[in-house]
Simulated scan of single mutants.
Amino acid sequence: MSASLPDLAVVYEHPEWFEPLFRALDRHGVSYVKVPLAGGSFDPAGSPAPATVVFSRVAMSSFLREPEHPIFYAQSLFEHWQGLGTRVVNASALNIDTSKARQMSLIARLGLKGPATRVAHRQADIPAAAQGLRFPVLVKADIGGAGAGITRYETPEKLAEAAGEKWCPVGVNGISLIQEYAPRRDGKVTRVETLNGKYLYALDIESPGDAFDLCPADACLVRPGAPTLTMTKANPSPEIIAAVERIAVEGGLEVGGVEYLIDERNGDVLFYDINGLSNFVANPVQVLGFDPHDTLVDWLKAIVAEEKIKRGGERAA
């Protein structure tokens, strides 16, 4: 590959979400190229990566903004570049990020608690799948983002009616999750961000009512209809941090967040979401006391340096 390649390519779908990242890259003097997925194509017999290192910023909520969303295209593109020997940061997170069903299986496999959940293949299967769950329940799309379409059903009859009329949320892959509703202690959830499998920071997010769109980043908060969120720095217990780090490592998250709530009925810690796209909190210095984008960029710079050394050694050999 040419020595004149930029150090980093940031591959993304949302046109505004990554401006804080781009500003941090500029501050640190990183040579990078922006690669929006819209309009993309590649040659399976060619199309080398556009930079020494590629950073995946693919949002699962992209299907809400564009019917021809790039989620599956990005998976094929990243696998192509990886096959050519390119380091694609966080491509490993796509397997877990693209399925809430896989997320809940991972949480259970690690011996952690989550809301009681059933996974249904078709809308017609939802009422039977929900048998034995405590109502109210939530129905979620398997591939979701920004709280996409999450709907609460108070009774089995209401759920059966919605499923019969095909009103229930389904993912773009046709899969739905039925999950026992757990009331949040103090009306909040906690989002723990990780970097390279290690704790970065945690954030308590409070929302009005049962809002499920809890993205705390700058661009999320200015969207029409977005809920008013209260965000404060959180300090999870060492046990919770250790659990989150296990989830991040086993789930292949190089950069990503894990969300949990405390069930106000019994005090259980319930992990319910694994997110491979971290936009980080708005006003980070005010909320956290530091800007996590700087930490992220320092880590990316180290990866770029490692790749250059490796490629130099391969050329010498």
Rank of each mutant, 00 (worst) to 15 (best):
C168D: 02
V170Q: 11
V172C: 13
V172Q: 07
N173Y: 04
N173P: 05
G174N: 09
I175S: 01
I175P: 01
S176M: 10
S176R: 02
L177Y: 04
Q179V: 10
Q179G: 05
E180H: 04
A182Y: 02
R184Q: 07
T190A: 04
T190G: 03
R191E: 02
R191Y: 05
E193Q: 08
E193L: 03
L195W: 12
N196C: 14
N196E: 15
K198C: 15
K198F: 11
Y199H: 15
L200V: 11
A202F: 10
A202E: 07
A202N: 09
E206N: 11
E206F: 11
S207R: 15
P208L: 13
G209Y: 13
D210W: 06
A211G: 15
L214R: 05
C215N: 14
P216H: 01
A217W: 09
A217N: 15
D218A: 12
D218P: 03
A219M: 10
A219V: 10
C220G: 13
C220M: 10
V222F: 12
A226F: 15
T228R: 15
T230I: 12
M231N: 06
T232P: 06
K233Y: 06
K233H: 11
P236I: 02
S237N: 09
P238G: 09
E239N: 11
I241W: 03
I241F: 05
I241K: 10
A242Q: 12
A243P: 03
V244N: 01
E245F: 07
E245P: 06
E245A: 08
E245N: 08
G252N: 06
V255C: 07
G256W: 00
G257E: 04
E259N: 07
Y260L: 01
